[in-house]
């Protein structure tokens, strides 16, 4: 509705400028005004397009690789010092992101995140998992289940447009679970599949597909030139 109104307003302003009748030097100014108006509209569209830049939430790199400004967004938790936990026993961590946070993400390859199981690994601002309705603020209760004993670090990142990012490190001391009555061990054997590196495959395809395309297009060009009199 707001956009429609803006478009109508722009159309009215342009119509007013177009319908103004002047002679001599003012006419020249009016022509210039029309041009300035159109260029301004074009620039506004240009800037609007730029402002739509968001993140690549599907990326697995730490956010600071692309979102290089790391001192604007804030990410805090209710953890004070080292958190004590037990293998297989879930515990909750209250997370609070603000100052324009767009995404919160936890990837298993960061720090010791693979030593834990997380109830959720990605939260978008104002999505169903975000309990803070304010724009640019994310709040959630993250349930974490330790998978192995030892001192591990959990690494959490938040990011937003305009290159912003921030992270939080939480140290967890995980003790062995002595409660044998509740522990069940399940051994599953999964068949091992041959692993292929997708980046390697992609590199090969970059050469292969482009070479095939080039050869095919040259053949097409020869056919078309020969058959067209």
């Amino acid at each position: 509705m707001r956009n429609e109104t803006s478009l109508v307003d722009i159309a009215r302003i342009y119509e007013l400028i177009s319908n103004m009748k002047c002679t001599g030097a003012p006419k020249l100014k009016l022509k210039l005004a029309k041009r300035v108006f159109l260029v301004t509209c074009f620039l506004a569209l240009f800037v609007a397009g730029g402002s739509m830049a968001l993140a690549f939430p599907s990326n697995d790199n730490v956010c600071s690789g692309c979102h290089t400004t790391t001192d604007v967004l804030t990410l805090t938790s209710n953890a004070t010092g080292t958190v004590d936990a037990t293998v297989g026993v879930p515990f909750d961590l209250d997370l609070d992101a603000s100052n324009g946070a767009g995404y919160l993400k936890i990837v298993s390859t960061w720090s010791n995140n693979d030593q834990f199981s997380f109830s959720i690994s990605e939260v978008e601002d104002d999505s169903g998992d975000d309990t803070d309705a304010a724009v640019g603020e994310i709040a959630l209760v993250l349930t974490i289940t330790p998978l192995a004993t030892g001192t591990h670090t959990i690494e959490i990142w938040i990011a937003a447009a305009s290159q912003l990012s921030a992270n939080l490190l939480v140290t967890v001391e995980v003790a062995e679970n002595t409660d044998t009555t509740t522990t069940t061990t399940t051994t599953t054997t999964t068949p091992t599949e041959p692993t292929t590196d997708p980046v390697e495959t992609w590199t090969t395809l970059m050469y292969l597909f482009n070479a095939i395309a080039a050869v095919m297009l040259i053949i097409f060009a020869v056919i078309m030139i020969k058959r067209t009199k």
Binding site: S58, N61, P198, V199, F209, A213, L217
Partner: peptide
């Protein structure tokens, strides 16, 4: 805007880079 290693780490970006190169060839033709 984005480092190459971040781009090729993402399957969507890999696809876009690969087929952008092929598409450019098509339009040059």
């Amino acid at each position: 805007d984005w480092p190459m290693e971040a781009l090729i780490d993402d399957p969507y970006m890999r696809f876009k880079i690969l087929w952008s190169a092929v598409t450019s060839q098509i339009y040059v033709f």
